[in-house]
Design a protein around this nucleic acid. Sequence first.
DNA 1: GATGAAACCTAACCTTT
DNA 2: AAAGGTTAGGTTTCATC
Lengths: 145, 145
Amino acid sequence: MDSLDYGIIEHLRRNARAGYGDIGEEIGLSASAVKRRVDKLVADRVIRGFTIQVDPTVDGLATEAYVELFCRGTVAPDELRRILSGIPEVVDAGTVTGSADAIVHMRSRDIPSLESALEKVRDAPNVDHTRSAIVLSRLISRQKH
Amino acid sequence: MDSLDYGIIEHLRRNARAGYGDIGEEIGLSASAVKRRVDKLVADRVIRGFTIQVDPTVDGLATEAYVELFCRGTVAPDELRRILSGIPEVVDAGTVTGSADAIVHMRSRDIPSLESALEKVRDAPNVDHTRSAIVLSRLISRQKH
DNA sequence: GATGAAACCTAACCTTT
DNA sequence: AAAGGTTAGGTTTCATC
């Protein structure tokens, strides 16, 4: 991971379909050298995948909530991860400092489907209760990792 | 936007570098038909961009927090957006129901840089106070929209 | 959907450090 | 050995029909 790799990642972030030649021109390498580095970055899982950013309305996932999760006793992060990974509406989650054990960001089609996803979260073992804040209007949405 | 377009989007989400021929094989279209559709999806801003998913540790943004934002009086969402968009550490934010006015997801290098970013949020006009929950361990991180 | 020229990807081989 | 350049082939893209 040197500055050339960072340059490649930076370029691919802006345009994942860029040609190796184009990238090489920017950072000062030949196309094949760039390809070798990209292949290595993918093999090393530095680059996790090539994807597209899509207009959110296409998914019809217009309803969002930030949910605080309160557990009974101590719950292992791995167990929480296992539970939450089975709920597709969970976009983002982490254990946190403060009175809640975790914060879960959920995205769903509408309020009823959000509610049923929330029930799945609440029905998990050791989950005591949740506190939800429904998103009224999205302010920032930056595409990061 | 018919089912073929959805198929194309689905395929490109999994692999943004897929060839038009490969995509066409899956959905039953010729390579040129796929290219025309992809070009149109990009022109119509349904596809917003082609990008990569990168190992988060590469960015060195290891510290995260969910911050509740409490404002004085009423604050227009547009004003909040203007303020928050100037703070690069803000990954994600939305106005919400409940006692807080907004929830802001921040990502930063370390605790000191998170703190200074938080100060920028708090120093914004009409922001009364904030309540932060620092992320201890990331549980889920799904690449959506 | 098909065609053909231009661009690109890819792997093998060579050079340099 | 490790990393970049060069070349040649096969494939893909892209404009046109």
